[in-house]
Amino acid sequence: MSDTPVIDAVALRKVYAAGDTPVVALADVTLQVQKGEFVAVVGASGSGKSTFMNLIGLLDRPTSGVLRLDGVDVARLTGNQRAIVRNHKVGFVFQGFNLLRRTSARENVELPLLYAGVPARAREEAARLALTQVGLGDRLEHMPNQLSGGQQQRVAIARALVNQPALLLADEPTGNLDSATTREILKLFVDLNLHHGITIVMVTHESDVAAVSRRVVQFKDGHLVLDGPPPPEWTPAIGVPWRQAAKVEAA
């Protein structure tokens, strides 16, 4: 099963019916993401990258095309089936953290397990583990408003990972963070990708953030215009091992 792509999109198309003229948000994009990849999705606003994220996150349905997530054809699932796939295969990290207010870090992390029907004892254990993994083992019962932005984003990452999804989907995860915290979160991503084999797809508009990834895909006007390793002129926000290796190869 290791050769099954995590994301397998073929001629993926999304058209919005806005007024009289339909808007083509995504024009027949074909893209594969393999297990263990760390992909940065870049593009201007309106380029189609958000639409692409919503489609692979199963928050939206494609107009046409094929989309397989971890081998499952998800393009034409019912609402309930999509919820189940979201629950089991995708972990979301948002720009605005999107934690439930007045709900402890632990309970926020437990949320996906709650909808997966995991019993209370096991939920609590898994949440504790996930929070420890992101370095918040001592903040289990803190409310989101008692945590810093970086800590809140770590809680969100723990929540995204707690169900052991095939894919971590991060939408501008550092957009609301200062540069020090940004580095902290990116280090966590690199660590998760490198040492835990977690597949990450991350939307960003900052080149130094995108440069941390192993692969950059760029959207423009709904088309995929670039797909490859980060351009060498982009300086990564943090040092990454694969970048070093690439430099050595180049030299």
Binding site: G57, G79, A83, I84, R86, F92, L111, Y115
Partner: peptide, 10 residues
């Protein structure tokens, strides 16, 4: 929205 994103069914 958050609940739906993490897998809550309708």
């Amino acid at each position: 929205g958050i609940r739906m994103a993490v897998g809550a069914k309708a």
